[in-house]
Each structure stands twice: as structure tokens, then as C-alpha cells.
Amino acid sequence: MDHRFLGIPELTSVPRVAVVIDVMRAFTVAAWAFSRGAERIVLAPTVSEALALKESHPGWLALKDGAPAPGFDAVNSPGQLRTRDFAGRTLVQKTTAGTVGALAVADAPLVLCASFVVAGPTARFLRSEDSGPVTFVVTGEEGRADEDLACAQYIGERIAGEGVDAAPYVHRARNSRAADELSRGQRRGCHPDDVELCLEVDRFPFAMVARREDSLTVLRPVTVPGTAAH
């Protein structure tokens, strides 16, 4: 199937089906938040809007990239989120690349956000929808981030069938610039386990679908039949 792999700056029209990839770390974090009970994640365009959404909705929590900051309840780190309890909560997420990419294609008829931890369910969801060619939005490094491109290509192959070896794709991600920076602690708000958590394949049994809800772009988990959690 003839999928497209584009960076955010290359998006010149609204695709019919978009899969937005951010492995390290936005959509690994989102998946972990759902696994810890979050009901939905509102994707915010700016830090100030993330805070404004939280302030205007009692009980909502906000998270962002970087070090802890006033008004934010969490940072964009799977290692730091994996023991949190978000049961029934709404999170507002603002990151440097992932949320930007998702908002750039928010008007598409079908938008999924993905990383390795939900790669298989994402592919099966698209197969069940008979979605046709997919535009993969490679969010990191203006479309050049190898961890995101590897994940996108892996999902693209898995749409066609299940017998795809993940190892070469994970190897590329492990040797990416982002993985190196996280491993060296060069990104603020990181945890020593972040890289390994971002490289787990099919950790969770759901895909993540982004839809417009009123004026917001909202990400929710969608359970995919025949998928089991690891």
C-alpha cells in the first residue's frame, strides 16, 4: 500500500487518514496515561492554553515537555507517569512535536496518534477500517527523526499483515538522536527508563484516536479486538 511519510512542515493539505507518530515521547506518554486510567487527553496548541484549559476545568491535569513547571501536574516522561493514578481524569498535553503534529491534521476524517507501544493495535484498527493509504506524520526533527520514521514504517508494514519483525525498526529507534539525548539525560524532565519504555512494542491493547469535540482536539483510547496487553 502506498503510504506517505511527511514531516509537519510538508503538510500542505488535509489527509483522509493520518497517523501522527511521536515515539520519544508524547504518544508513549499518552498511552501510559490511558493505561493508568485517564479518560481522555486534550491536545493543547500552546503552554498558555494548556494552563488556561486546566484552570477553566476543575479536576483537569496538565503535562508538558521539560522540567516541572508551576501549574503543570506532570512532565512528558513515561518513566515518571507509569506509577501515577489518573483514573477518570482528563489530561491536557502540550509537547514540542507530537501535539503540534496532531493539531496540524486535526481536521482529517480519521486521525490516530501512535508510537511503538500501540503499533500493532494501530495497524489492526486501520486494517479493520479498510482505511486505504495513510499519511504518516513524522513529528520529530521536521520529519527526519529516525525513531518516528522507523515506527511509522513498521506500522505501515503491519497494516499489510502481521508477520513483520519489529527488531530492525526498534534497533533504528534505539540508535536515534532522540534516544541518545534521553539516555545521556540531555532532555529535561526525563527518567532513566524512558528510552526502554518508548521501545516496548505493543505494550498496550488499544489504538488512540483523535477527534474534534466542540472546539477541542481530544485523544481517546479505542480497544482493538484480538489485541492483548503485554
Score class of each variant (00 low, 15 high):
Met1Arg: 12
Asp2Pro: 14
Asp2Gly: 12
Ile8Leu: 10
Glu10Asp: 15
Glu10Cys: 07
Thr12Ala: 14
Ser13Trp: 08
Val14Thr: 15
Val17Gln: 03
Val20Arg: 02
Asp22Glu: 12
Asp22Gln: 09
Val23Trp: 02
Met24His: 08
Ala31Gly: 13
Phe34Leu: 05
Phe34Gly: 03
Arg36Leu: 08
Ala38Thr: 09
Glu39His: 10
Glu39Pro: 01
Ala50Val: 07
Ala50Ser: 13
Ala52Leu: 10
Leu53Gln: 08
Pro58Ala: 07
Ala62Ser: 07
Pro68Cys: 01
Ala69Arg: 11
Gly71Ile: 06
Ala74Lys: 05
Pro78Leu: 04
Gly79Ser: 07
Gln80His: 13
Asp85Pro: 01
Phe86Asn: 01
Phe86Cys: 04
Phe86Asp: 01
Gly88Pro: 01
Thr99Ala: 06
Ala104Cys: 08
Asp107Val: 11
Ala108Ile: 01
Pro109Lys: 10
Pro109His: 11
Leu110Trp: 04
Val111Arg: 00
Ala114Arg: 00
Ala114Trp: 00
Val117Arg: 07
Pro121Met: 03
Pro121Asp: 06
Ser128Arg: 15
Asp130Leu: 11
Thr135Glu: 10
Thr135His: 02
Thr135Asn: 07
Val137Ile: 12
Val138Arg: 00
Gly140Lys: 04
Gly143Asn: 03
Glu147Met: 02
Leu149Val: 02
Cys151Arg: 02
Tyr154Leu: 09
Ile155Tyr: 00
Ile155Lys: 00
Ala160Thr: 13
Gly161Ser: 08
Glu162Ile: 05
Gly163Glu: 15
Ala166His: 09
Arg172Ile: 03
Arg172Tyr: 01
Ala173Thr: 03
Asn175Gln: 13
Arg177Pro: 00
Glu181Phe: 13
Leu182Ala: 10
Leu182Trp: 10
Ser183Asn: 14
Arg184Val: 10
Gln186Lys: 15
His191Val: 09
His191Gln: 11
Asp193Val: 05
Asp193Gln: 12
Asp194Gln: 12
Glu196Phe: 03
Leu197Ser: 09
Leu199Gly: 03
Glu200Met: 13
Val201Asp: 05
Asp202His: 07
Arg203His: 13
Phe206Arg: 04
Arg211Glu: 15
Arg212Trp: 13
Thr217Gly: 08
Val222Leu: 15
Val222Glu: 15
Val224Asp: 06
Pro225Cys: 06
Ala228His: 11
Ala229Arg: 15
